[in-house]
Nucleic acid binder design. Sequence first.
DNA 1: CCTTTAAATGGAAATAGTTTCCATTTATTC
DNA 2: GAATAAATGGAAACTATTTCCATTTAAAGG
Lengths: 139, 139
Amino acid sequence: MYKAYQLIRNAGLKLTPIRKEIILIFEESPRPFTPREVQNLVQKRIGRCGLPGIYRNLEALAGCGVLFRLAGFGRERFYALCREPGTDPHHHHIVCVSCGKVAHVDGCRYHEGMMLGGYRLLSHIVQFEGVCANCQENN
Amino acid sequence: MYKAYQLIRNAGLKLTPIRKEIILIFEESPRPFTPREVQNLVQKRIGRCGLPGIYRNLEALAGCGVLFRLAGFGRERFYALCREPGTDPHHHHIVCVSCGKVAHVDGCRYHEGMMLGGYRLLSHIVQFEGVCANCQENN
DNA sequence: CCTTTAAATGGAAATAGTTTCCATTTATTC
DNA sequence: GAATAAATGGAAACTATTTCCATTTAAAGG
Ligand SMILES: [Mn+2]
Ligand SMILES: [Mn+2]
Ligand SMILES: [Zn+2]
Ligand SMILES: [Zn+2]
């Protein structure tokens, strides 16, 4: 809550009703959403709201660390909330293919500047799909 | 070479001139290409060729292990050749941000079925960007 | 070779996600 | 309360990707 608001403020962004609403939406559900889904959910709560604004806000919130954008090969993009990390400030995420629940995965061995296969590493994408504990039982 | 042809045949796909040409294009350059780029290059060699066919072929070649599709957040997709792996049959790739050269990265610790953060792991995306040895000198 | 058949192809058009433009509104600061 | 830069919404533009379908072709069998 305050955490997200802080991140927004620290980035010099305004704390608008839509942004607050977007954060609430993500906090109430542990799964990723597409821009269109976010728009629909925001519209149910506040009145109308444009898709371009949603795109801008999702990017803005990802840019200041409130959300992150998932990697993937589908045609539409997904964002999810980066909740309280575990031990590791540098971490990645695993998404349940059944219920969409996102969890942290700590212990990444890669970091900027290290050598990897003769290359000087600049950035990396690491992302997982699996079945969460709950969905392993109830299936 | 034969390797790629084998993979195509084993998948029950036909070995068409366009597919051969696509493979040649990727073998002559170590960097990723977009579908549009592939189309242009194929057209320079053989006559006209449609973009839908290129899309179908890139997916087909990725499906049978000749190419792989890169993960990323840009709007267009990239494919690259999966060349002779090193020691590890399960590996990932690093792309040079300067010249585009793709190299293998062995030693992935993740595998299907393992437990990760309480999830049963199904799949993962791991991909790197860096600066290759050559580009570290010449810059 | 010649025939057969499922797969592949190209062009045009449709989709659909994303971005741009711009006039209007609003959060923030003083 | 006024000033100002940022945010917003709607319409339209963009553009990568996919679909459709008629035509061609690789591959298998005789
Ligand atoms: Mn996180
Ligand atoms: Mn490879
Ligand atoms: Zn689950
Ligand atoms: Zn390089």
